[in-house]
Measured scan of single mutants.
Amino acid sequence: MAAGGDHGSPDSYRSPLASRYASPEMCFVFSDRYKFRTWRQLWLWLAEAEQTLGLPITDEQIQEMKSNLENIDFKMAAEEEKRLRHDVMAHVHTFGHCCPKAAGIIHLGATSCYVGDNTDLIILRNALDLLLPKLARVISRLADFAKERASLPTLGFTHFQPAQLTTVGKRCCLWIQDLCMDLQNLKRVRDDLRFRGVKGTTGTQASFLQLFEGDDHKVEQLDKMVTEKAGFKRAFIITGQTYTRKVDIEVLSVLASLGASVHKICTDIRLLANLKEMEEPFEKQQIGSSAMPYKRNPMRSERCCSLARHLMTLVMDPLQTASVQWFERTLDDSANRRICLAEAFLTADTILNTLQNISEGLVVYPKVIERRIRQELPFMATENIIMAMVKAGGSRQDCHEKIRVLSQQAASVVKQEGGDNDLIERIQVDAYFSPIHSQLDHLLDPSSFTGRASQQVQRFLEEEVYPLLKPYESVMKVKAELCL
């Protein structure tokens, strides 16, 4: 049975990233139509530049190519590739079939990587351009969430054990800070992308030097003109047959890092959902379990974690691919890159769409948070109580021993009897502590235990987050809708 299948058929496997999760716009960027249309555009740009620099290419040939950029006979191309065992030459023939007058000058002087690699770089750039505003929107939604809850005390956790208090907004800023680093890295790697350009079979530009009869300047002009037509500021000066596969490492490393950030955020949300302090959106008709109707599973956060793990592992592909590119190139890269580049971007696209949807509907339960604080705060307040007693004339050592005994009794009630923490009640009825009984409410005010959390939130948002989001103001209103 021949390899390949009808990918629109229910009898043929289709990647869930495309069929179930990723956005239509990201799927289109990695589609065959987008790819092969870009090949034709690159052939047109090459012909236009070659004509401008004096090669015998007519206006009629150029116009014929322009008129057929979208006229792609995919069936013919597939048949040609089956016959020739070469995808680029299959599309040269297919393009030439609908451009008979231009057929002889299509791909003039070029090698397969002229269309293959340059198209990949265009796709990487455009895919990054799709991700950047999506990530900015996630940051914006979380920034709104953090600002609104900047002063809401909550129990902090280290080692997932109760620690000092923080605020809900401050905790959210930990998430935002990681995503801001990801946004900066995505922008950097996007701006650092260079075009492969017009380089020939081993990167020496020998074929173009021959076409222009040894004119170095025209060869350099050709490279520059096509690079500018493709919208790049610069091209690699040095290439082998391909652009260095280190570029793929750079791009997928940034995406993998984004995956790590999203995994951490969504894990926190899942843990908070278990504590009943916070939940992701839950639709009115949504079913959490087929057997347990009360369940409210954090399905979206779980999906993000599941896909983020996949995204983090994909960076190993370009690392290994770059390491086995012998001399000017081997074909070890080809099949692998067809999979890992598309999957990385479709996965990143999915987790950003999902995280935006989550961040637009996060639900906080202040009463649950308050109750958990009441359970733990008495123990945390013991040092403040000791200091207040010393100020009232008591002995630190005597007070410490009193607190120690009462704390152990209260802990026994919590752990052995399943009761509430009654340390404060014990202190309130103990005559030894009568000098500070009137101060206990103040000493137990949760806001006095959150330090500068709310001020940190305000400063972080104003100095770091809002300036970073400013270039994306025009796209901030787009909502994230999930079908599944």
Rank of each mutant, 00 (worst) to 15 (best):
A47K: 04
E302V: 00
V457W: 00
S323W: 00
N353R: 11
A22V: 09
N118D: 11
Q408P: 04
A342C: 00
M292F: 06
P378M: 04
K470E: 15
S407G: 11
K477W: 12
A291C: 02
L423P: 05
E25K: 13
M312R: 01
Q439D: 15
Q241Y: 01
Q285R: 07
R426E: 03
G104W: 12
G393I: 09
L209K: 07
I122S: 03
A453M: 01
V219K: 04
K402V: 14
E473P: 14
C304T: 08
V226G: 01
G197N: 00
I265N: 07
L275K: 13
D117T: 00
I403Y: 10
H437D: 12
V363E: 01
A163M: 10
N126G: 09
Q210A: 08
G109L: 02
L355T: 06
L155H: 04
L484I: 10
A410I: 01
L252S: 09
E48T: 07
D129K: 15
L346Q: 07
G288L: 01
K170M: 10
D73M: 02
S19I: 08
R137N: 10
Q408R: 09
P435A: 09
D215T: 12
E417H: 08
L423K: 05
N68H: 06
G259E: 02
Q416L: 10
I436T: 08
T158P: 03
T94V: 15
T119R: 00
S359K: 10
T330V: 09
P16V: 15
F195T: 09
A322T: 14
R426C: 00
I176E: 07
K199Y: 05
M387G: 14
L131Y: 03
Q416I: 11
S19L: 12
I72Q: 07
S289G: 01
R85D: 00
N421Q: 06
R194L: 11
L84E: 11
D333F: 04
I237V: 12
G8N: 11
A342E: 00
E473F: 08
R137P: 14
Q375E: 06
A235K: 06
T204P: 01
R83P: 08
D120A: 09
L255N: 08
Q409C: 10
E48C: 06
R459M: 15
Q61G: 12
S334G: 12
D430K: 04
A2P: 12
P10A: 13
D248Y: 01
C172Y: 15
Q285K: 06
A388W: 06
K477F: 07
I385T: 12
I237L: 09
L461D: 05
L135S: 10
I57N: 00
E80W: 04
Q177K: 08
Q177E: 15
L69V: 03
S448F: 05
Y432S: 11
I351W: 00
G96N: 07
Y34P: 00
R171H: 08
M476D: 15
Y21I: 00
P100R: 09
E277D: 01
A143W: 04
P435F: 03
P10S: 14
G200S: 09
R33I: 11
Y13A: 15
L124G: 03
S9G: 05
A410E: 02
G54K: 08
F208P: 01
A230C: 05
L406A: 07
L108A: 10
R83T: 11
M316K: 02
G109A: 06
T227L: 09
E425T: 12
E60M: 02
R404V: 11
N336H: 02
Q164L: 12
P133I: 15
T94I: 12
